[in-house]
Amino acid sequence: MNWARSGLGARNPRAAARTASWILLLSAAAIPVSSIGLPGPATQRTMMIGSPVISIALAGVLTIRRLPEAVRGALLILAPLLGIVSVVTLNIATRDASAGAQVMFCLPALFAATHLRSLGALIVAVFCMFGVALTVAVLRPDGGGVYDWFDVSLVIGLITGILLLGAQRHDRLVAMLKAQASRDPLTGLVTRRVLDEAMHQALMPLVPRQGGDARGTALVLLDLDHFKAINDTYGHPVGDDALVHLAALLRHDAGPDVVVARLGGDEMAVLLTRCTAHTAQEWARTLLARVLSHPLPMSTGADLTLGISVGVGHSDPGPMPLRDLYSAADASLYAAKHAGRGQVGPTRTASLNPPPEAATPTPLLVHKPPPSRP
């Protein structure tokens, strides 16, 4: 079961397991200490009931961090509920229904509100209030403990509410920072980090794809030709407009499984999954033709024809380091630039042991950009 999606799981399982270990350790030490000074029968009852609790707590300290993720996720939800049962049992065994004894119910609520998601924290808070009510009902049936139940329940509710509000603000902040880190603010394309993650999944899949897909993965690298000259001639705002314009053209030709990223400056990349080398080359040629046929309209009323150089790297199915596919696409891009820019370089095949020289290079596709209209 996916505990995180159910709203019950821990926000950070490792941190929750670490906190649970400390709580279990302190609880195991607190049981014999709390029995000091009690009357003889009460001490015996406390230790008789507390000994299994101590054993379970110490076992939890030793094992909770080493358990499989699914088992640990379930245990982190059950731990505060088991803690509530333990507190109820010990309080009834010692016949202590005071507010001081009921404060121990705040410990499971504090853990849940700090480490569990909203639904799990609310469930634990409700069980804590029920545990206090059960203890008071058993030990003080005359109704004298109602005010103690109200006070402790109020504290539990405040702890849960305040910590959940803080956790929600924290989650929104983290989500905003992740979104900012994954999107280029100018073009709206994803960043290099997102592209690398997608490439890693395509080139080094954890689970082999069904059906034995033999098409492979392609990486297309491109940049604007003479981008510095555009900035120097028309100004940096026009240069920014050119990048936004190019990003829009890339997104227009991108399907749902295509990842389009800005690497930095005027460099952009496109990841094509389940794609043959021929399909990648044709996709790059179509992109080049589209860029040349869609000039950038400027505020002066003139159109600025943009030129791009494109490199294509392709990897056959099977594990392949990201660096090798990047190197293949970069070699193709360098060939396009070396031949005069404004063209698609020959497709390079990524290889773990690349040959010193390409065997038979694919002819370059050259497009001469038409002159810009004044």
Score class of each variant (00 low, 15 high):
105 F>I: 05
208 P>W: 12
166 G>E: 11
187 T>S: 11
145 G>H: 07
185 P>T: 08
101 A>Y: 00
146 V>L: 15
101 A>E: 10
95 R>A: 14
183 R>Q: 15
170 H>Q: 14
202 A>V: 02
131 G>I: 03
113 A>W: 10
103 V>L: 15
152 V>D: 12
194 V>H: 03
198 A>N: 09
118 S>C: 03
119 L>Q: 09
151 D>Q: 12
147 Y>F: 12
188 G>Q: 10
146 V>A: 14
152 V>L: 10
171 D>H: 09
147 Y>M: 11
176 M>F: 03
140 R>D: 14
171 D>G: 00
117 R>P: 09
123 I>H: 00
167 A>H: 13
129 M>S: 09
118 S>M: 06
132 V>T: 09
169 R>G: 13
202 A>M: 07
102 Q>F: 05
138 V>Q: 03
165 L>C: 11
103 V>W: 02
101 A>G: 15
198 A>L: 02
142 D>T: 06
158 L>D: 00
139 L>N: 02
140 R>M: 12
185 P>W: 07
113 A>F: 06
124 V>R: 01
107 L>E: 09
120 G>C: 10
109 A>T: 11
129 M>V: 03
158 L>T: 12
110 L>K: 01
183 R>K: 14
93 A>I: 01
100 G>A: 04
183 R>M: 10
112 A>D: 09
207 V>M: 08
167 A>E: 14
99 A>P: 00
94 T>C: 00
160 T>L: 08
183 R>F: 10
199 M>W: 06
178 K>Q: 15
206 L>R: 13
108 P>Y: 07
106 C>H: 02
207 V>Q: 13
191 T>M: 04
119 L>E: 06
201 Q>M: 06
121 A>S: 09
116 L>P: 05
173 L>H: 13
142 D>A: 04
145 G>Y: 12
96 D>W: 02
170 H>E: 15
143 G>W: 01
112 A>P: 10
144 G>E: 11
123 I>L: 15
119 L>H: 10
167 A>D: 10
148 D>C: 03
97 A>D: 12
118 S>R: 15
119 L>I: 14
194 V>C: 05
182 S>P: 07
192 R>W: 04
154 L>M: 15
131 G>K: 02
173 L>N: 11
160 T>W: 05
135 T>S: 11
163 L>P: 03
144 G>K: 06
132 V>K: 01
143 G>Q: 09
174 V>G: 03
98 S>T: 09
196 D>Q: 08
175 A>M: 03
142 D>M: 03
105 F>S: 03
108 P>I: 05
152 V>N: 05
107 L>W: 07
185 P>I: 12
132 V>E: 01
207 V>A: 12
190 V>L: 03
